[in-house]
Structures are given as structure tokens and as C-alpha cells.
Design a protein around this nucleic acid. Structure first.
Length: 201
DNA sequence: CCCTGATTCGC
DNA sequence: GCGAATCAGG
């Protein structure tokens, strides 16, 4: 493969969008991340300040913490996340569709499993620890929202949303080595039969 | 260990 | 110019 105008163009675009060299290499195909980096340098756009203000800062996370503790035990480990079974509206900054549909979807999600992997929780099937669920929906907000083609051996392949709609993507966060999912999703997918139970302390 | 970009240097 | 090997860091 050679650096045709097209490929260089795509390289510039992706690099400008903050994609990593390895990601770009995969999207371009036929090149390694080294090749990409090398080219990036030769093009003189090593600094991602190409154009204007591409400062992909992760959305600031709300810190719910205001507990005006009157006077409690010093070492009180209040680790009781009230994870409501309701799925948080993991939305982005803006939503194109107003979605005035009367239809309410109360249950969690209905992920579709890539292949031969442990099945995610069926909403009505079994029970997952509230903590795991909470962590999961929390993570979905930070997910990279990868497309099918962006998945690699080390990206979380946890599907989110309805494949029939545009609102469908894969978690994409760093997967646990050897596992198909990231830490949070592994926690949900690989539920030890005795995960909950001896939780009391 | 996984990943990231940066640099070198033979081709 | 190209990119594998290597380096340096997270």
C-alpha cells in the first residue's frame, strides 16, 4: 500500500479527530501504526492541533457527594449505591431526535452477543448485583461507542442499544486481557454464582 | 501486559 | 519518502 492522496486525506482527518495511530492504521488497512506515525510526522502534523481546537476532553463527570454528615463513624464505609434497575439515559450532548414516542423502555438493554460468549443478563431472566449494573450503565456513558468495524481483540465488545436503530454501538473500552469485555461488562457477564450473597459485612 | 506517540536509520 | 525497530512514557 502506498500513501495515495485519498489515504493521506483520511489519515489527516482521522488524526485530526483524535484517533490513535493504531486505530488509523486499522481503518486504512495495509499499514502498521508505525507507518501511520511516521507519515504523521513527515506531514508535520504530529501535534494534533491541526485546524482548530480539537481538544477531545472526556465529558466532566458529575460528582454527587454532598453529604452534610452530621457526625458519623469515622470509618464508615457507606458503599450502598442505590442502583435503580432503570437504565440511565446514556445520551450525548445533543439528541437529534426528540423521540416523543410514548413507548417507554423500562428494562435494561437487550444486547446481542457477538459470538460464543457468556450471555449478558436478560432483563427478566436473572438478577445482577445492583453495583455491577450501576457500574455498567455508568461506563456506558464513557464508552467509546465503536462501530462493528472498530472492534479489536482488546476492545470491549459489549453491545449497547438496538441494532435496528442508529443508537447502537459497542462499548469499546479496553477489554480485559483474554476477555471480550471491559472490566465493568465482564463483571456483569461473568457473574460468579455466588457473587452476591456474602456481601454483608 | 496493554497501550500511546517519538525517533532513528537502513532501505 | 517509507516504515520496522526501537525508545520513552502511561
Amino acid at each position: 500500500m502506498s500513501w495515495t492522496d485519498e489515504r493521506v486525506e483520511l489519515l489527516k482527518k482521522l488524526w485530526g479527530e483524535g484517533h490513535s495511530a493504531s486505530q488509523i492504521a486499522k481503518e486504512l488497512g495495509g499499514v502498521t501504526r508505525n507507518a501511520v506515525i511516521g507519515k504523521v510526522h513527515r506531514l508535520g502534523l504530529s501535534n494534533r492541533t491541526a485546524g482548530t481546537a480539537p481538544k477531545p476532553e472526556p465529558a466532566p463527570e458529575p460528582r454527587p457527594e454532598p453529604v452534610a454528615a452530621p457526625r458519623a463513624e469515622p470509618a464508615a464505609r457507606a458503599a450502598a449505591p442505590k442502583a435503580p434497575p432503570k437504565a440511565e439515559p446514556a445520551n450525548v450532548a445533543e439528541e437529534a431526535a426528540p423521540a416523543t414516542e410514548p413507548r417507554v423502555v423500562p428494562h435494561v438493554r437487550k444486547p446481542i452477543i457477538p459470538a460464543g460468549q457468556p450471555l449478558p443478563p436478560q432483563p427478566s431472566a436473572n438478577e445482577i448485583s445492583p453495583e455491577a449494573l450501576a457500574k455498567m450503565s455508568e461506563v456506558e456513558k464513557k464508552a467509546r461507542r465503536l462501530g462493528l468495524m472498530d472492534l479489536t481483540e482488546r476492545t470491549c465488545k459489549w453491545p449497547v442499544g438496538d441494532p435496528a436503530t442508529d443508537d447502537f454501538w459497542f462499548c469499546g473500552l479496553p477489554a480485559q486481557p483474554g476477555k471480550p469485555y471491559c472490566e465493568a461488562h465482564v463483571a456483569v457477564a461473568f457473574q460468579p454464582m455466588n457473587a452476591r450473597r456474602n456481601r454483608r459485612r
